[in-house]
């Protein structure tokens, strides 16, 4: 096989990994602090994609309308997520975890129907923003500027979030909330608002992921369920609630997808599933996660 071909597969895997990281990091962040496994996270991603398409329709694809659409879609999804947490989900924290799972699963069904009614069942697509519509030659292959942007955006977001969590006052409070919410509330913190804030941020990441994916793949019903399955695999591999674990999990997933397909079509998904199953057996808390106390 040509080295340039392999390099192309590698870059493709990297791009896929960064999208997965955007989505899975929000899922992992929400689980890390709230201990809620949000099935509807993939639905938020789908809504981000549809909203981006809608805003591009309104403002037009010329100029930098795409960026406005991506930001608007992410914010819209974030506000929706925060509202759902504040008005509905919070009533279930005292119940068994099963109720939370059922609730977020119900959200998946409701949001899928809302999307079908609003945007239909056909495929929709969004073109790349003019500023990133070009491409460049790299080691003998053609790489779209947009893909390079995604490959750089992933680590940037990872680093920014890590610095926010480790080095800022808000980050310290969030880490404390993840470790012991009851103690934090006894020290005077209104933990309810911290939860809402984390749901906002996690949903923002899902919405942003959905919006940014639109120039690379078409928007279809069912993308919500497909992506939540992938995101679950990523966080299981990396360790649920572990920030760098999610990053590592996404990188591994992306590369296994990219190179597994060379064995035979369909082998990729078998390979990631086998990897996840192995990790669940030998290290159930994931590569960089910690056993739950």
């Amino acid at each position: 096989m040509e080295p340039s071909f392999l390099f192309g597969q590698f870059l493709g895997g990297l791009t896929a990994a960064m999208f997965l990281f955007l989505i899975a990091s929000g899922l992992s962040l929400i689980f890390g602090v709230l201990r809620v496994l949000n099935f509807a996270h993939g639905s938020f991603y789908m809504l981000g994609a549809y909203l981006a398409w809608q805003i591009v329709r309104w403002v037009g694809p010329e100029g930098e309308g795409f960026w406005l659409a991506a930001l608007g879609a992410a914010l819209g999804v974030a506000i929706l997520g925060a509202a759902i947490e504040r008005l509905l989900l919070r009533h279930l924290y005292r119940r068994e975890e099963l109720y939370q799972l059922l609730f977020t699963y119900a959200l998946v069904l409701v949001l899928a129907d809302v999307a079908k009614v609003t945007w239909g069942t056909g495929q929709l697509s969004v073109s790349r923003p003019p500023s990133l519509s070009g491409s460049l030659q790299l080691l003998g292959i053609t790489v779209p500027h947009y893909n390079l942007f995604i490959i750089l955006l992933g680590p940037t977001i990872a680093l920014v979030f890590w610095l926010l969590l480790q080095r800022t006052a808000i980050g310290r409070v969030v880490r404390a909330a993840a470790l012991d919410r009851e103690m934090l509330s006894a020290l005077g913190a209104n933990v309810g608002w911290i939860y809402t804030g984390m749901f906002f941020v996690g949903s923002f990441l899902a919405g942003l992921g959905g919006a940014l994916v639109t120039p690379t793949q078409s928007i279809v019903p069912g993308m919500d369920v497909a992506v939540i399955v992938d995101a679950f695999i990523v966080v299981v591999i990396g360790g649920l609630g572990s920030f760098w674990g999610t990053f590592l999990g996404a990188l591994i997933f992306g590369q296994v997808l990219a190179f597994g397909i060379l064995v035979f079509p369909g082998f990729s998904i078998f390979a990631v599933s086998a990897l996840m199953a192995t990790i669940l057996v030998v290290r159930p808390w994931g590569l960089l996660g910690r056993p739950i106390r």
Binding site: A169, R172, V173, R175, A176, L179, D180, E182, M183, L184, L187, G188, A189
Partner: peptide, 18 residues
């Protein structure tokens, strides 16, 4: 109920902020 992954100073800082 110390926040075990936070340093001594971070434990105090969090308490002061909240």
């Amino acid at each position: 109920r110390i926040f075990g992954e936070l340093t001594t100073w971070e434990n105090l800082d969090v308490a002061q902020r909240v």
